[in-house]
Design a protein around this nucleic acid. Structure first.
Lengths: 130, 130
DNA sequence: GGTTGCCTTGACGCCGGTGGCAAGGTCTAG
DNA sequence: CTAGACCTTGCCACCGGCGTCAAGGCAACC
């Protein structure tokens, strides 16, 4: 399988695949003419990468999942390193949610305050501008 | 007031102030030697900018708040344009919270699945490696 | 007049995952 | 023979809010 086919089947671009390779996530043999030749087993690896990227993981976070898949597991999530990353990411997401809730409260309060006090300079300015 | 003093009083850097100026958010007169000279009224403007940046606003979002302050309002939030931005940001934050909740569910499920199935290839590999 | 400490503009770096382009080699069908 | 559809490496651009250095001018004090 050449890079174009893998890209299409995995729903990504050749550019991305070469990028993953330079970062040690996927592997390719080379044919006589220098073309990258992919094993069928790279397809689920690329799919795993895409899925984790979509969830907000960075390439470094994804590495253990790929290693886990290569170790022969049906899922890349079952190895200890992957689980550790999952736990860490879950904590990060929780922290993010908390932060956004705090921001939300702030915005809601400011909005309420703004609406309560809207009849001030702005309106007066607009009235005098007429 | 020169730029260093404004930066210190506002709790930011001279670099940031110059950046805000190039983006049309703050104003400075120039003394004979070319130094930026700030009016006292710029201090609350810079404080407003910092506060909104800290909440996650971009410089473009902040512009109406600055205009509102310059119009003579005690708060930069009370003008219609500011309120519109506040509403939009609130919606964005809500969307962000929803997205993070979805990611959280996903992670939690994957984690649960990983822990349930952990006694597979990984463990066997480690056992055979001994 | 020399040091210190302010100020000026300009420009590169960062972070991360690509997109896009250039300049070229390769393979196949007509 | 040629067109076009693949492939290769390599490098610039992006986004945004700065940090950080470079090279220099200005002010004030000893």
């Amino acid at each position: 399988m050449l890079i174009g086919e893998l890209a299409q089947r995995a729903g990504t671009s050749t550019r991305a695949l070469r990028y993953y390779e330079t970062h040690g996530l996927i592997r390719a043999a080379r044919s006589a003419n220098g073309y990258r030749v992919y094993d069928e087993a790279e397809l689920p690896v690329v799919r795993e990468i895409r899925a984790l990227l979509a969830v907000g993981f960075g390439l470094d976070d994804i590495r253990p999942f790929v290693a886990c898949l290569r170790a022969g597991n049906a899922s890349g999530h079952v190895c200890p390193d992957s689980v550790a990353v999952l736990r860490r990411k879950l904590a990060e997401v929780d922290a993010g949610i908390d932060r956004l809730h705090a921001v939300r409260r702030e915005l809601r309060d400011q909005l309420a305050h703004a609406i309560t006090h809207r009849e001030e300079t702005c309106s007066r300015l607009r009235r005098t501008a007429r």
